[in-house]
Amino acid sequence: MTVTDAPGAAASGDPTPGVRIDEHAGAVLAEHAAWNEEHRRLSEHSLSALRDSGALRLLVPERVGGDELTLADMVANVREAALYDGAAAWVLMVLVGHSWMLGSMSEDLQDEVYGADLDTIVPGSLAPVGSATECEGGWLVDGRWPFTSGAVWGDWFLLGSQVLEPGERPRLIHVVMPRSDIEVDDNWYAIGLRGTGSCDVTAEQAFVPTHRMLDSGELLGARSPWSARHRTSLYHTPVLPGLAVHVAATALGLARAGLDDAADRFGVQDDRYMGTAKSRRPGLHMRLAEANAEVRSAEMLIDDTIGLLRRAAEGDDSKALRAHAKYQGSYAIELCRRALDRVTTAAGGRAVFDGSRLQQAFRDVTMASQHQVADLDTVGEAYGRTRLGMDPGPHPL
């Protein structure tokens, strides 16, 4: 039973241009989802399915041989992958997001990263928790970066750092480092998205040449001089509101998978105390109806937000637009979390065991909702201020 049917929603095998996650790739992801969960990282089979599908190339710049498609294509593929395995969808979302950001960095870096392999794996951690010291020809970088999804498979790493200069505000930069400079700390034990391998990574006095660095303001603010050197305006898209859409795409797929599993359960379970079918309960009908409306609303918010970000990329940019876009993407994540919470509460004890798709989707979307871009308090304040004609304040947009 499918309760999340939606106009324009991609189903398995949908031939829509840009959709790479087909039934074959989905079957591989589903087959290895339990292994990923148990071993706390993606299996080689899952990673190969993503690679072989071509989904890793969605936002890789065309100038190096990538597809350079759109955020809508990213959403369609990540959403589809999440129907089969939330961990695989999350890692796909992260890797596609980082290839999108590398399009704003130097052409020498793009050639270096993608010259040998368009499907190269670039995990990372955007928070500026590393430290960088300028030296001849570049930077010496130290640090420990958490939440580096897909770290064990990384070929290159995109990492945030601070340049500490006495008496001044820290200068924030992002650097790209090869696997040879990185150590992976296998410390990923979490409530959800367990199969993502989102371990800490560390580096010690790693040399980063100048062409592998970009000021964070230029990268996150879509102000890089390299962004304009592409065929499309994709790399002019503001990164932080864009990342909210990336995370929302994963949450959307998880919510749809969880609601479908809940409907299947409600359709066959009996109330052991009342001796009647659960499917006859009016309360369940209302929960499913409201949860489905929340997921549909999230999908429409994501679509609308993509339109806002397209406007920004094409030049109609402002702090108010960015606050609007980031809030809508973040609120879409919250709607998906609420929808799964609503039906999980009514699913009964048999839904709580490992192996339950609903239980796993609930845990995964709960974890996804902890991402910084989903902090509704801060982004809500920023958007609310702009609705009153005020500056959005210090919140990163």
Rank of each mutant, 00 (worst) to 15 (best):
R40W: 07
G221R: 09
S149T: 13
I121W: 09
V175T: 11
G65A: 04
L56Q: 00
R337K: 07
A313L: 06
Q328G: 08
E37N: 10
P394I: 06
R350G: 15
L158V: 13
G86A: 09
A87P: 03
L158G: 02
A382I: 05
K319W: 14
G195N: 05
R272K: 14
R350E: 15
M93H: 05
R212E: 03
V184M: 09
A222S: 11
D108T: 13
T378E: 10
K278W: 13
L29Q: 05
E31N: 13
A11S: 08
E168R: 12
V122G: 02
Y383C: 07
L243Q: 11
D117T: 06
R342P: 09
V113N: 01
V60M: 01
A368N: 11
K319G: 11
S224A: 10
P225E: 08
P123L: 09
Y273T: 14
G393V: 09
S227Q: 12
D317K: 04
H285E: 10
L193A: 04
Q328V: 03
L172W: 06
H211D: 13
S330M: 04
D117P: 04
L219P: 02
L71G: 00
R229N: 11
D316F: 08
S279Q: 10
V295A: 05
P146K: 11
S233C: 14
V175A: 05
C135R: 15
T4L: 12
R337E: 09
D375G: 04
E38T: 14
M101S: 13
S318W: 10
L234G: 04
S125K: 07
L83P: 00
S99R: 14
S198N: 13
R272T: 13
N36Y: 05
A190H: 03
E204I: 15
G54P: 14
A228H: 12
S161E: 10
D261R: 00
A81Y: 00
T305H: 00
P396C: 00
S12Q: 14
K319N: 15
Q162H: 04
G349A: 10
R40D: 08
A87K: 02
S161Y: 06
L240E: 01
D142N: 12
S149P: 01
A320C: 11
D186V: 14
D317Q: 08
G275Y: 14
R385I: 05
E168N: 13
G167V: 03
Q360M: 00
A249R: 00
L358R: 02
L102V: 04
A255N: 05
P178C: 08
R342F: 08
L102C: 04
L301D: 06
V373Y: 02
G137L: 04
L58F: 01
D181F: 12
D271N: 15
L47Q: 02
G167F: 00
D270Q: 15
W139M: 04
L159S: 02
V365W: 02
L254H: 03
E23H: 09
Y327L: 13
G150R: 00
V247Y: 01
T210Y: 14
P166V: 08
G137V: 12
G66V: 00
S216R: 10
G384W: 07
F353G: 09
D304K: 08
H39Q: 15
S216F: 01
S216W: 06
P17H: 07
P123C: 10
V379G: 01
S125N: 15
A49D: 06
I306S: 00
C135W: 09
G217I: 13
H371G: 11
A76F: 00
P61L: 12
